[in-house]
Design a binder for these strands. Sequence first.
DNA 1: CAAACTATGCAACTTTGTTGCAAAGGTTTT
DNA 2: AAAACCTTTGCAACAAAGTTGCATAGTTTG
Lengths: 138, 138
Amino acid sequence: MEAEIKKILKQNELSVTESRSRILEIFLDNKGAMAHCDIEKKFGEKMDRVTVYRTLQTFLSKGIIHTIPTSDSSIQYALCKSDCTEGHHHDDHVHFVCDECGTTVCLDDITTPALKLPKGFKPKQVEVVVSGTCKNCN
Amino acid sequence: MEAEIKKILKQNELSVTESRSRILEIFLDNKGAMAHCDIEKKFGEKMDRVTVYRTLQTFLSKGIIHTIPTSDSSIQYALCKSDCTEGHHHDDHVHFVCDECGTTVCLDDITTPALKLPKGFKPKQVEVVVSGTCKNCN
DNA sequence: CAAACTATGCAACTTTGTTGCAAAGGTTTT
DNA sequence: AAAACCTTTGCAACAAAGTTGCATAGTTTG
């Protein structure tokens, strides 16, 4: 586990620090998506809020994590699949938000469908977020 | 126009006030989606921030407007089609966000596709947000 | 191990969203 | 058309979320 974390950070040309390792560990443990505040709560007072913000920013720009659109004002973050590299994401999977337990998961095997758009619109990325009841709450 | 605004408010059992009329007018003018701050800017100091928040909340709960999920922490609001009533929305259309001009539009004629989900997942609503270049920026 | 560089934590601040309450505005009744 | 009634608005004060600059602590490289 620790080796895996180190590997991911080094692959992305990031220095291996305690904060980064611990945040990355949480993402690896917890397969679902997390908002900033979820991460903050996990640490209590052991880590500064600012560090969490900056670490998430760094992970985002390196393509280690990606964001998931939501209808409230929270930003959900989730681990990218291993074949995501800087500037070359594979964010073409469907996301599922459970109305009961509130968790967000990536359905990595369900790819976003092709869509017919009106004339003049050139699509670059398609985001799909399905809400309903998840496997565990059913 | 004024008559139209009055009609919509009365249909939804809302008293016809200046703030509500003016916010609704902006939505009718400006066919695209708007975030809270866009609306605030349009008024300058003529309307209190709190009033904008409360008016949007009211319009949301009555089904006059709906929210559009985003990957940043802003919430986008857009007018519902006229066949939306309280508690019975028709939010099954695709949204398009332009990377160039930043505007968000509802593609009312493109409905969200049916999706095959893994076993145990029960979908209730499907949100689709496409980003790319819009008709005007092409 | 030391020098060079980068990340962290703190403080101060800005922005965004919420709540209670008195005053102003809309609606209804007569 | 005015009074009584109810709802909405604006203000103030607050809470939460996010940002920035800078000194200190931690990491990496030679």
